[in-house]
């Protein structure tokens, strides 16, 4: 568990952020009309410490919706490539919910492999300290506990903040990077033994759940078995193929690569893509191995709950509930999981 606990009052939280602003770019949940989203703050007061879940996940901090891979300039015969890396400055990602922090640890498995390292992603990860905020309450759409996680999960975080009674917060140190951020700050005070106990107790309470988590290995094997079954016959009936679920999902990471050019100069860019779209798998020859919405939806479920278990050893869903909340036709992944667990067909 955590090596060191510090304590800060609610009143001092924004001041701590102000201190960080001297050294870091700070990204935190900020209010925008009736929802919150991650944004760069210029004052600690702009951060929203009570937002249950931001509308967009923080994945775009590391894996932007669109990003330049390199620039090019061509004339008739010559090509000049410009691969100057983008300037990446030290930043703090503050107030991330543990489900989202966990999703970042999952994305690391995709983008930071021994064979092919995604340099821009890895540089941003290295330059970022993640400070998570344990959840006091779950939203109606939250289901992290079904994925074997909990509201004080430490995966992916450098520091984890847990709210204690009387508007005080305990900060647990999880990594050397987190420790560095704390060392640099003079605001969070040393915790008493009692506070440290309170932190550990809160973690235990968060872990003590009555929800039975899915057995991801068993589910992965079952999904592989029922690939061709009638289970997939109806979920897609109302799917519009809009891709909202994949864009909001903190672990969805599929992307497109395209060239943007005008007058012989341009750039190669990488954009978020979605398995919900026909074009996603369409060959130039016209052949499409996954032409229908039935296959698109099955691919999404299989990718999250079977293929990633095979490849990375865990289901790529953190139970944040964004896809449940924002699907325009109320396709609910929790219902699919429930029915999958009960499904007896082959």
């Amino acid at each position: 568990m955590s090596n060191e606990i510090r304590i800060i009052s609610r009143e001092d939280l924004p001041k701590w952020l102000d201190q960080m602003l001297g050294t870091f770019t700070v990204v935190a949940p900020t209010r925008q009309d009736d929802y919150t989203n991650f944004g760069v703050i210029t004052s600690g007061n702009q951060a929203d410490f009570d937002a249950v879940n931001t509308r967009m996940s923080p994945k775009q901090i590391f894996f932007p919706k669109t990003e330049r891979l390199f620039g090019f300039a061509t004339d008739r015969q010559q090509v000049k490539l410009d691969d100057t890396p983008q300037q990446i400055t030290p930043q703090v990602l503050f107030g991330v919910r543990p489900c989202d922090a966990r999703s970042i640890a999952m994305l690391d498995k995709v983008f930071d492999t021994d064979v092919y390292r995604d340099q821009q992603y890895v540089s941003r990860r290295k330059a970022t300290t993640i400070v998570s905020l344990a959840c006091k309450q779950l939203a109606p759409s939250c289901f992290c506990t079904r994925l074997g996680s909990n509201p004080a999960d430490m995966a992916g975080s450098d520091l984890l903040i847990i709210e204690l009674p009387e508007d005080r917060f305990a900060i647990g140190t999880l990594t050397p990077k987190g420790a560095d951020l704390l060392t640099a700050a003079d605001l969070p005070a040393q915790a008493t033994a009692q506070d440290a106990q309170a932190f550990d107790k809160a973690v235990r309470i968060a872990q003590d759940t009555t929800v039975k988590p899915i057995d991801s290995d068993k589910l992965a094997a079952k999904l592989a078995r029922i690939f061709d079954s009638a289970f997939w016959d109806r979920w897609h009936d109302r799917c519009l193929g809009c891709g909202t679920c994949t864009y909001l999902c903190p672990t969805c990471h599929c992307f497109d690569i395209a060239d943007e050019a005008k007058n012989n100069t341009g750039q190669r860019v990488r954009n978020w893509d979605s398995c919900m779209f026909d074009l996603f798998t369409l060959h130039a020859s016209g052949h499409n191995p996954r032409p229908s919405q039935r296959q698109h939806l099955r691919q999404r479920v299989m990718h999250k709950f079977s293929y990633t278990v095979d490849r990375y050893g865990q289901a790529f869903c953190v139970g944040c509930g964004r896809c449940v909340n924002r699907c325009p036709v109320n396709i609910d992944i929790r219902e699919i999981l429930d029915e999958l667990e009960d499904y007896q067909g082959g």
Binding site: A224, H253, C254, F255, H303, Y307
Partner: peptide, 9 residues
């Protein structure tokens, strides 16, 4: 990484 050329896993 880009996620589209899979057959199963």
């Amino acid at each position: 990484k880009c996620g589209r050329c899979n057959i199963g896993s």
